[in-house]
Simulated scan of single mutants.
Amino acid sequence: MTDLTQLRREYLQGGLRRSDLTPEPMAFFERWMEQAIAAELMDPTAMCVATVDEHSQPWQRIVLLKQYDERGFVFFTNLESRKATHLAQNARVSLHFPWHMLERQVSVTGIAEPLSTTEVLKYFVSRPKDSQIAAWASRQSSRLTARQALETKFAEMKARFAKGEVPLPKFWGGYRVKPQTVEFWQGGEHRLHDRFLYTREDEQWHIERLAP
């Protein structure tokens, strides 16, 4: 086994102070997201989405954030997928943005609410046609006998929708995660990281500094 104990580095890119923060978290998240994009990070919108199954077993996967505003964080998925099945049973969800190159993390807890068909359709029609077809071809999270089966299904759907627009699948949709807590983490020298936690209470946001 490779010895990992000596792999370490100092976090020196900057600190985070209470005076840097905005009164509510989404405005500060927007600032950090814009900085992540400007820094040309690979996949700055990538976030880990954690759900819990009926046995209280957590599951995680990387999903791309597609929208955000004061209402919350939006992502899209197959409604027959593992994550959607979990959310139908337990809408509590956790999101995590790992912006390693900026020595930053953002962690979110909240409730996932299904998007309206209008919201889903508006995004679906903006996708490249092959991505729309892929949504029809893949029964997300189901077992496959071989990759060839997936490629064959994609070819079938591509032929089916060769002309005209690709309709929105009934089994494809999205969620808005309404945040209850949002934590901003900035790496610090000697592992003295800066952490600030926003907590929603009675529709008001309260801010606390946490020990690293």
Rank of each mutant, 00 (worst) to 15 (best):
I207C: 12
E40M: 10
R160D: 00
L41M: 12
S142Y: 15
M33F: 15
V106H: 10
R31F: 12
F161W: 12
S116Q: 08
L210C: 09
V108R: 12
M157Q: 11
W172S: 06
Q6D: 03
G164Y: 01
M157V: 07
I111A: 06
M26Y: 15
M1Q: 04
M1K: 06
H96W: 11
H55S: 13
A46D: 03
E54T: 12
L41S: 05
L150V: 02
K122W: 05
Q148M: 09
R200I: 00
F184M: 10
M42R: 14
A91F: 03
S19P: 01
T145I: 12
W99L: 08
I37Q: 13
T109G: 09
M26S: 11
F28P: 03
E80W: 03
A88P: 02
K170P: 00
T118C: 06
G188I: 10
V52F: 00
M42W: 06
K178R: 15
A146K: 07
E24K: 12
T181Y: 04
P23Q: 09
Q180F: 05
I37Y: 14
Q89Y: 05
F154D: 10
P114W: 03
Y68G: 05
R147A: 08
A159Q: 15
L65M: 14
H206G: 00
Q140V: 07
E165M: 03
Q180G: 06
E165S: 12
R31W: 10
V93H: 10
R61M: 06
R31H: 15
Q148P: 01
E151M: 15
F97L: 11
M26N: 12
A146V: 01
F196G: 02
T152E: 14
M33D: 09
V182Y: 05
G164H: 01
M42E: 14
K129R: 13
G14A: 05
E80H: 13
M1P: 02
T181M: 04
H206C: 05
L197V: 04
A91R: 12
K66S: 02
A146H: 14
W136K: 08
S126F: 07
K153E: 15
S107V: 13
P25R: 06
Q67E: 15
K178S: 13
T2D: 03
T117M: 01
I111H: 10
Q148A: 15
E30Q: 15
F76C: 08
A50E: 04
Q180P: 00
E10M: 09
H100F: 14
D20G: 08
T109H: 13
Y198D: 02
A84C: 03
T22W: 00
S107A: 14
L192P: 04
Q132W: 03
V52R: 02
Q35V: 09
A84W: 06
P167A: 09
A146N: 12
L79F: 01
F75S: 06
D53R: 01
R18Q: 14
H55W: 12
E103T: 09
D43Y: 10
L197K: 07
R200H: 00
S116M: 01
Q132K: 09
L64D: 11
F184S: 11
R71A: 15
F73I: 07
L121E: 12
N78E: 02
P167G: 03
G164R: 01
S116G: 05
R31Q: 15
S94H: 09
D20E: 10
M101A: 14
W205C: 01
T145K: 13
S56N: 08
F76N: 03
R191P: 08
H190T: 05
